[in-house]
Design a protein around this nucleic acid. Sequence first.
DNA 1: AACGCCGCCTGATCGC
DNA 2: TGCGATCAGGCGGCGT
Length: 287
Amino acid sequence: MPELPEVEVLRRHLDPVLSGRIVRSVEVRRPRVIRPTPVAELTAALVGARFRSVGRRGKYLVFDLERGGGAGVRLYGHLGMTGRMYVQPAALELPRHTSVVIGLDGGNEVFLFEDPRYFGRFNLDPTPLGGLGPEPLGADFTIAGLAMVLRRSARPIKVVLMDQTVVAGVGNIYASEALFRAGVSPRKAARRLRSVEVGRVRESVREILTEAILCGSTLPLDFGGGRDGLFYYGAVAAASELGGSEFYTERLRVYDRAGEPCERCGTAIRRIVQATRSTFYCAQCQK
DNA sequence: AACGCCGCCTGATCGC
DNA sequence: TGCGATCAGGCGGCGT
C-alpha cells in the first residue's frame, strides 16, 4: 500500500532514470486509469515530449515534460493500492494488468504503469492535487496550522490524519504508526487533543515518514527475481515487497500486529475499524 | 457542510 | 483438494 514514503522512494528512483528521455509512443490498455483524460489527448501531449524531472505531491507523482518549443506538459500518477511504475526492456512480456505503456527513445525500453486493481491514476488532470493539504515534511505543516484544523473536527484523530486535505500523503499504515509514536489514541476526537499532543502528532508523522523514506532508499531499488529472474523497478518492489522480507514489517510497531504484545508495555495490540478502515493501536500506551 | 459510507477492482487468504 | 466468501483500502461521489 503505497503511501508518501513509497511514492517518494519511487520518485527518487525514476527521476534520473527518466530525465532526458523522449516519449516515442503511448499505449493505453485500460482507459479507466487515465480518466478523465481522453486517450487521444494523452497521446498527443506525450509523444515527442521529453521527460525533465519527476516530482511528488502527497501520494501523487508529477512528471514534468517538455515539448518542442519549450511548452510544458505535466503528467500525474497515483499508485492507488497496487500500482507499480517501472522501466523494462521493450522485448519483455508485459505484466497482466499493464494499464499504460510509454515507449522510450531508442525503442529498447518502455516505461509502464501496472495496476491490478485499477485504483490508480495516470493522466493530465491536475484537479485532485488542488485540494491537498500541506506536505508533511515541508515547512508549511506547522503546529499552529494543524491545531487550527484539528480544533474544528469531531472526527477521530486517526481518520483526520488520513484526510488528504489536512496533510498530504499519510495513509492507513503510517497514521497508525505515527499515533503510536505520539502516544495518542486513534479514537480521540481531533478537537480534544491538547496542544502538547498536537505537537507530538506532527513530530511523529514527520519522523515516521522520514525514517520510512530512509529505510526504503537504503534498500536496493534494482530488484531481481520479481519476474522471470529479471530486474524491475517500482515502489512496491522498493518497499512493500521487500517488506515481505522482515526488514520492512519489522519497523512497524502496531500495523497488522493485532494480538501481538506492544513492544513498549507488552499489552496486546488492538485492531478496530474506523471509517471502514483497520486501525491498530496499544490501548495502554495511547490515551 | 461535515462526515459517513458505498463502489470500484483483483488477489490473497480463510473456512468448510 | 477445491471453491466460494471475505478482506484489503485510496479516493470520488453521493446521501444525510
